[in-house]
Amino acid sequence: MKSKPPPADVRRADFEQLYERHSREVWAVAYARWMNADTASDVMQETFLRLWKQQETGETILNPRAWLLRVARNLAEDFAKSAFRRNGTSPPQTMNGVQASEPMPLERLERDETFAQLREVMEQLPKADREILTLRYALDYETGEIAELLSINATAVHMRLSRARQRLADRLKREGVGPLP
């Protein structure tokens, strides 16, 4: 449905509100796909830029949250075909998907090593497992919130989450990934 777009400052305020409310979910969806923080941030920014352009045309989005998550999922999938994915590499600060903004004492090195192993194991999990674990542990979402976001019921969330965690724990044990130092 098309209508005359509201003035730019009103649109910008709405846009920032939507960003504040949904950007973490968008990031989590992209992160669950690629397990890479920089890629997830890029996908998040691109998703919101597309939202802005969509609003600029006067197109009414009835459910912005669903729209954003759908676009983020599509963009995350398209990322596989992009040139950066084919040719690029991670900058040194994010090798192994672990950001290094602090000094690197021994404890920190061990922790990064554990995270890198965990990341490898998570990459082997099914996409659905990664998504539900990311929503639960990155965003601290409760069962009800996850159910609403994934459009499934609470029992299904319990089941999926429990199985995903079990699979992860089994693989971690098999790979010998220990607890944090």
Binding site: Y19, Q99, R111, L118, R119, A138, A169, L172
Partner: peptide, 21 residues
């Protein structure tokens, strides 16, 4: 597993959170 996952995601999420584009 819970503790590990929480710490992992905390380290992965951008700090501070990026501003809107």
């Amino acid at each position: 597993v819970d503790g590990l996952l929480r710490a992992f995601y905390r380290a992965q999420m951008p700090h501070p959170w990026p501003k809107p584009p």
